[in-house]
């Protein structure tokens, strides 16, 4: 396990999400209206939709492709749908976010893409 700094709470919009690129795939980091932060593998258990693009309400995110609701705390699909995506632990210390990742993905680098040319 390694604890990685990924950015600040304020970088994620309330009721929104941002993506962290990793070697194992994108991880979606969500922030709800109570400033709780959650991290899920950015792949819906249904048809692999990008959960980071969904609408966030309380503890669930709705996949933009077919409206599955995923519990952001566990990564599990809400009933009656069945399935689970990986949930990661994310903590906030003085507004700075840390992601706990399984080993093999330590090095943090700047975003490779910039926007606004």
């Amino acid at each position: 396990m390694s604890l990685l700094e990924i950015g600040k709470l304020e970088d994620i919009p309330k009721l929104g999400s941002r993506v962290v690129r990793t070697a194992q795939g994108d991880i979606a980091v969500f922030r709800n209206s109570d400033d709780e932060v959650f991290a899920l593998l950015d792949i819906c258990p249904h048809k692999a939709g990008p959960l980071s693009q969904g609408i966030v309400c309380e503890h669930t995110v709705t996949c933009p492709l077919h409206n599955w609701n995923i519990d952001m705390r566990s990564g599990a699909a809400c009933a009656p749908d069945e399935g689970k995506t990986t949930a990661y632990e994310v903590t906030s210390k003085a507004g700075v976010l840390f992601l706990k990742l399984p080993d093999g993905a330590e090095k943090v680098s700047k975003p490779t893409q910039t926007v606004g040319s």
Binding site: L4, I6, G7, D11, I12, P13, R18, V19, V20, R21, T22, A23, D26, V29, L101, A105, E106, K107, V108, S109, K110, P111, T112, Q113, T114, V115, G116
Partner: peptide, 17 residues
Amino acid sequence: RAEGACKNEFEPLTAIA
């Protein structure tokens, strides 16, 4: 957006190599 509005929407938060 091409001029820089809503940048967060399009950029990843960070990338871990």
